[in-house]
Amino acid sequence: MNDWAAQVLQGDRRALARVLTWVENAAAEGRAAWQALFPHAGRAHIVGVTGPPGAGKSTLVAALVQHWRQHHPQQRVAVLAVDPSSPYTGGALLGDRVRLTPRLAQDPAVFFRSMASRGAVGGLAQATEQAVQVLDAAGYNPIFVETVGAGQAEVDIMRLAHTVLVVQAPGLGDDIQAIKAGMLEIAHILVVNKADRPDAQRTRRILEEMLRLGPRRAAAWQPPVLLTVATTGQGVPQVAQAIVAHRQHLQRSGAWQQHEARRLQAALERALRDALWRRWRARVEPGRYDAVLQALARRELTPDQAAAQLLDDAPTLPTPPPRGDAGSP
């Protein structure tokens, strides 16, 4: 067994932090550890927490972790907080840790990691998924993943998390506009945080109304709309209960296993696309790629025709899957 992986499995938090860095950087030195840890993952309940900036996601996550540590003291809990990188500089300000209480910040059964999206399409990188699995292998359960709700990130969090909490707060601009339909559709639990503010009940009614008007859901799970004051912990036990209830619902209905299978299949397809791309790129005749690229730039070829020409050059290669979006050089 890989030394680093062994240390992670024994509970060494420094080794865990280092393996997370390698996974995040897709660093070659972490590959062996990742392979050794992979069989140990697949147990944790992954809880996504998303919503607009300032809604109180980080504060709520801290309150939930606190609740878990009090009521399930045998469980170790992890948080992965993902914030966007600047598209211009690549830098990021990762401030979610501010909401950890001193007690949680020093709790040896709590592991909190901040992650920048690093220009990944959608904000939830492949690295995030691997980081979650490393935390899972290390024995953390549940694992909370905080992301800013925006566009593609919603789809990503739905794929990654078993249970998605969408957090809203009254007074974040115009209510109806702030609550995007896409966010509602991915929510298993809706939280109206800042219930100490006026208009919280109104926000809740709007959400309930939108849920009624929204698309009918296949499974029997009806998303509850819960009020919280994350800063005082009010309503947090109810959210924790809903999280557990949703996990039990998934496990009873078989959706848990389906989710896992879908996620692994997506990972396999991604790995296949990457591998096929790399293999093909290594074999393509030098200069040939550039020549076709230039023909494309002169608009003598469409991208589809250009791809077909390049693939015809090496007819022995397997045809890549239709959505070959594995990137360009």
């Binding site: 500089t89 830098g91 840790r97």
Partner: peptide, 20 residues
């Protein structure tokens, strides 16, 4: 400034103990 220089900055807030 560090973020603008392309770094990832983890900010922890006020009143941190050395252990934290």
């Amino acid at each position: 400034a560090l973020r603008d220089a392309g770094m990832e900055v983890i900010y922890t807030g006020l009143r941190q103990t050395p252990e934290m």
